[in-house]
Nucleic acid binder design. Sequence first.
RNA 1: GUCCCCAUCGUCUAGCCUGGCCCAGGACGCCGGCCUUUCAAGCCGGCAACACGGGUUCAAAUCCCGUUGGGGACACCA
Length: 471
Amino acid sequence: MSDIRVRFAPSPTGYLHIGGLRTALFNWLFARRHGGKFIVRIEDTDRHRSMDEVIEPIVNGLRWTGLDWDEGPYRQTERLDLYRHKAMTLLEQGRAYWCVCTPEELDVRRKAAQARGESVQYDGRCRARGLTAPAEPAALRFRSPHTGHTVIDDLIKGSIVFDNAVLDDLIILRSNGYPTYHLSVVVDDALMGITHVIRGDDHVTNTPRQVPLFEALGYPVPRFAHLPMILGADKSRLSKRHGATSVLAYRDMGYLPDALVNYLVRLGWSHGDQEIFSMRDMIEKFSFDHVQTSAAVFNPEKLQWLNAEYIKQGTSRCIAEQLRPLLEQQGYDCNGPVQPRGGLEAVIPHLRTRAKTLVEMVEWTMPYLTEPVAMDEAAAAKFLTPAMAPSLKKFAERVKTVEPFSQETVAPVLQALLEEDRLKMGAFAQPLRVALTGRTFSPGIYEVMDLLGRERTLRRIDHALQRIPPS
RNA sequence: GUCCCCAUCGUCUAGCCUGGCCCAGGACGCCGGCCUUUCAAGCCGGCAACACGGGUUCAAAUCCCGUUGGGGACACCA
């Protein structure tokens, strides 16, 4: 055990995306590595942008990937009194002041300053007014230090120095009484005993703004670790343009949670040349020493490769369990009368090297879960020809009686037939494959017959023969 | 514009802190071959990078400075 406490603090303004998940993962790994606590906190203090309905999907995303948390999810809107109380404390101590500038006025001034090429900081016009009980709507601003320097000793980037002159007097309480992010994050991180703030790179410039708040409130300042960003292929910030961005969308596209997590952990962290990490493995090996300092581009191909690796390595049972919901979503009945011999689990060993995603695997599984099988017309036209009919027919007749019906008994029959009819394996296997699966690609032909069983094998050959026009 | 961060194959990265083992290693992708009853998988091989310019040093991908390039932040968003 240790007293390390970290948190993942998403704002419910959209779905949990790849970048958010990676932040959560690194927090989780750090906590698990050191026997600390991982806390989930929903930062929903923006009444206009927060959406209750996305909280559940965010939490489900974490759950799906196996990132379990020890406390929470806390919601900041349930803790508003805390922030208001702390804000008032700062006001009483003279560390904060009322500001009656309206958002519209501020916006105009900001734009004007920008147009003149000047600093876009708040001009501080309410700082010295000493308003005590403003009649008009007022926001509370923190009196930031304007001299000296703030130094952050970042666990990933090392020492970063900021000139306090660049600090704004940031609003900590909106005129509607809600706290802003800067206040609530500091109060919560302190009250929740967060020892390490692990977050995205986009927060580095927030850090020198928040450190003085910790100090003004009399709280110890946590350690910081700023993770490099994940970018899209065009090196811009990852967004919907770069493909599905919701974590749950990856589940729906047939990705295994362990594969996604494995991909993400290698985006910005490494352990020598190792590519494949089990959860246990990464917990054991994770360290900030090997977290990258520069941004990484999200590469869907490599994710897919990893997913394929996990499909190849996972147990049949585990893969089948994850495949089942997708099959049912597509309308296949996994408990109906039409099943591969040996059940769904039995098809997995034959499909695992062929499918890169579970969605692809659904496609591969279809011939064994439907009756009659869907026929690819082009394949039928090419391979189910009058010339092949006699051999197919002969094959069906002969395997009708082999006992038992298995590769050991069927293979000699097929070999004999090839010799008799002077056919090459390929010349006969393809038509047979099309007859049995409706398509030109499948697992080995003996495996297919094994999965189908004698009855379905014979029925499918029969159907195929029926559709072959007489020569 | 101001501030901050970053910079090794197309991409993820090892190496950098503690200079020589690096005319730079691995992985994805791509290309070629082998295997083969199809499709995959597998195996073998190939292409491909230290952003640039100055220093420091006997020696620099590794240390220092600058340039360029990329990213991020500058809200009553988080």
